[in-house]
Design a protein around this nucleic acid. Structure first.
Lengths: 204, 204, 204, 204
DNA sequence: CATGAATGAGTGTTCATTCAT
DNA sequence: TATGAATGAACACTCATTCAT
């Protein structure tokens, strides 16, 4: 149960590999066609696996999504830890985290409508199970950074950290759907300047 | 025959009434279940009318949406005209328009995912007709106000008006989906302060 | 793995069986109600299978039809080859082929409105896909036989082979819909005599 | 009741006019789109009359068709009477009648799929009323001419008149759907020669 | 008699989910 | 465990027919 489950078990290895193949295929399909337009059959075709196999690993398309969001979230948490250990200012941390997120999102554009939108709240599974997708955990990351900044006196306090945090989320969201001529990174970069100026305490 | 045709005509009256009943039912359903999840049958059930009747008035669900967006849009245009005639500053106009929009949106929450999101761009009708929903005209309203403000020297120019305009849209969007304890109006009000500070030229 | 894949495979067997069951059910329904009046639901009810199963095998009603026509066509081609190898006269070949066709058609009455009519050209699928059904290949069979006969001097040349060919098609068609007291075979047999006399060069 | 109904009665006149307008509109629509694809709404739109008005004159689309076929039939009967009074040979009468029919049909191509096809046997009304369209009366016209010819010894008797009559019907039918380069008239003219030769007693 | 809005059964088609192999 | 054929509920949309005006 110990070693066997942890490392060995060719059986176990294979299972994990299959699981990842499904996730990867899903990412590609979601990116190409969007979440709603992608059917489970699409995913399993892309993964070159049998349709029924899907249900050995996930309970629904929404379940796949949850997993993708969480792994995304994990990556960012790791980056944050590094920044905090460096004793940077909140402004720096915030800026850096935004740019990290931007780069990650750039490579996984498909996730955007799902990461930051309420759109995901209402996906439409066949039955009545319409599970409200839980807001991905990393949503709280920016909140903590901002709160820290407020306590350190870097950021204004007359607007709550929660509200400011929402502004950051929305920044990503609209940038992702933007039809302007700017690249996603450029778009974010400009908005970031705006927001940073807006939340910084005067004179700073 | 003239007046009669224009105003009277019980037939005509009834038709308009039926049309409005469908629109109202659609509003309710969209609000409750969201646009995508609402079926035409849902709407007509809510309206307590026959399914086929729908097609006497609208050609598709998207058509209903277009109508809702446009009437919304018209209302706001009217408000803007009044403000401009008053020779207010851009900052005032912007603030007022945001609050007007906020109030309207408050009463028509359902429209939000559609008004400000790219979500609407990809609705998925059964056939391949996937008509890209035209961005509602009023999307340009805020853009014009901001450009004016930049020309008058009220707003910073190192961030383009288009980008700023997107920030305002996103503000509405996330406020609409916010799970925070604040009311929609309070939420917007705080974000507005933030944005106004962010875009105002220093010293102003 | 070779033979197994080719022939065995209970899975494969069952699939083929199901496919045939659908085809057979379609034949029955088409015969009873005609092509246009038969709905896919009708077919699958008759086949005692789920509605959705249809789409695992065929893409549309027209697709079913194409399959039926082609298998029909193949059978006749085979008969023709045998006759030609026997060095028969054109008159004999024509007569024999007509009788072969007659027997086949007798057993598959349903196909007639589709085999010989332009009716099939305008089926009306729901969408706009209105695929012009390709005229079944064997339509050309009689044409070639007649051309041969003309070249050999057996058949008159003042009427083009194409026109004569059309006469044969129409012969089948009306025989199929005939309300006269004669059997389909008798009907054809008489008409055939008439046509053969009409196209033979005098004195022959 | 007498004179009034027969001639006067502006009311009556108008009714007849409306009826004819519907028939004419139906002809145009049937020609353009075919019988099945034409909806009652199409007809009444073309006639520039209210949809409901249709049911004051006809009970269904099939009913309209019946009327069109019968008026067609009437025209031909009239021509036949003239020919018979001239004491022509059966061969002449048959030839002339075919050419008359050809010209009429040329101008009313739309009717063809309906006049000569079994297609009409299975039109598909919404309910279960699927009325088998009665074969238009004029179908019998050719039969009588041929029988006369047989009695006079002009036409062969080893093939029944009914069968020969069917050949003539089929001639029209396939000519109507022909994709050959010949005009409808040319097409018929050649086939007619063939058939006349086929049915004439030898030596004649 | 003329009208056209209302109706709902019917159609083709999709797809998440199940289950026998 | 992997598979994919079977399934049927759900959808958008059409149109003959009715009936109140």
């Amino acid at each position: 149960m110990t070693v066997q489950q942890e490392k060995c078990g060719k059986r176990e290895q294979k299972k994990i590999k299959a699981r990842n193949e499904i996730l990867n295929a899903a990412v590609v399909q979601f990116s190409e066609k969007g979440f709603i337009e992608t059917s489970i059959a699409d995913i399993m075709n892309a993964a070159d696996m049998g349709l029924g196999t899907f249900y050995n690993y996930f309970s629904s398309k929404e379940d796949v999504l949850r997993n993708l969001l969480n792994s995304f979230s994990g990556t960012l948490s790791y980056e944050l830890k590094k920044l905090v250990e460096n004793n940077s200012t909140s402004k720096t941390i915030l800026t850096e985290m935004v740019m990290h997120t931007t780069r990650l999102v750039s490579k996984n554009r498909y996730l955007l409508p799902l990461l930051f939108t309420g759109a995901m709240v209402h996906t439409k599974p066949r039955g009545d199970k319409s599970v409200d997708m839980p807001a991905p955990e990393f949503m709280g990351t920016f909140l903590r950074i901002i709160k820290d900044g407020q306590e350190k006196g870097e950021f204004r306090k007359d607007v709550t950290a929660e509200i400011i945090s929402e502004m950051f989320h929305s920044m990503f969201q609209t940038a992702a759907f933007s039809h302007l001529k700017f690249s996603f990174e450029e778009n974010i970069e400009m908005k970031l300047r705006l927001l940073i100026d807006g939340i910084s305490v005067c004179g700073k």
